[in-house]
């Protein structure tokens, strides 16, 4: 009989554990949230930023696509404009960051007459193939970064910068 009965001691134990649990949760939850939130914070449109580039207009020839988003730096919000080189490769769309992997100049497509169909960095003659792969013997030591791409209502969306996984 007494098995089913809750003794005074047990009752107190349960309630205190329960209340303690709530209190612990009350303290921990905001901490966890603060810890995770910045990582979850994203640019507008989830992870992606809308561009004014129509997907249907993208060809095999790389074009410059500008996109802006808001960047919060402590209390200071600023609008940042970034650029990507965008082209079609087979069925997929490739978006490459124009930032040279040597010392950070901006690379241009096809601007060096001696080496056509490459990305060229005028600063120290760095060169990249169309895929973004750095040409050995020129200063850059790695490939151009890429952007995640997506599409919405026929327009190109650009996402996070990712390391270029060149096959």
């Amino acid at each position: 009989m007494s098995n089913n009965r809750v003794s005074r001691r047990q009752f107190l134990n349960y309630t205190l554990t329960g209340v303690g649990g709530f209190m612990a949760a009350g303290i921990l939850m905001p901490m966890v949230r603060f810890a995770i939130d910045p990582a979850l914070q994203t640019k507008a449109e989830g992870d992606f930023v809308q561009t004014s580039q129509k997907v249907a207009d993208i060809t095999e020839e790389p074009v410059k696509v500008d996109f802006s988003y808001e960047q919060v730096d402590a209390w200071y919000t600023s609008e940042v404009t970034d650029t990507a080189w965008v082209y079609k490769s087979g069925d997929s769309i490739v978006a490459l960051s124009p930032v040279c992997k040597h010392l950070g100049c901006t690379v241009n497509w096809n601007s060096d007459t001696e080496h056509p169909n490459q990305f060229f960095c005028a600063c120290h003659g760095g060169r990249y193939e169309k895929t973004g792969k750095n040409v050995p013997g020129t200063p850059p030591l790695g490939p151009l970064d890429a952007y995640e791409v997506s599409e919405k209502d026929g327009f190109l969306l650009l996402g996070k910068k990712i390391a270029n996984n060149l096959a």
Binding site: C100, L103, G104, C105, T106, C121, C123
Partner: peptide, 17 residues
Amino acid sequence: DFLMSLTAFVEQQFKGR
């Protein structure tokens, strides 16, 4: 304003040089 904007733009283009 013009000169400051333009030189910042030049900086972005030739950051490494």
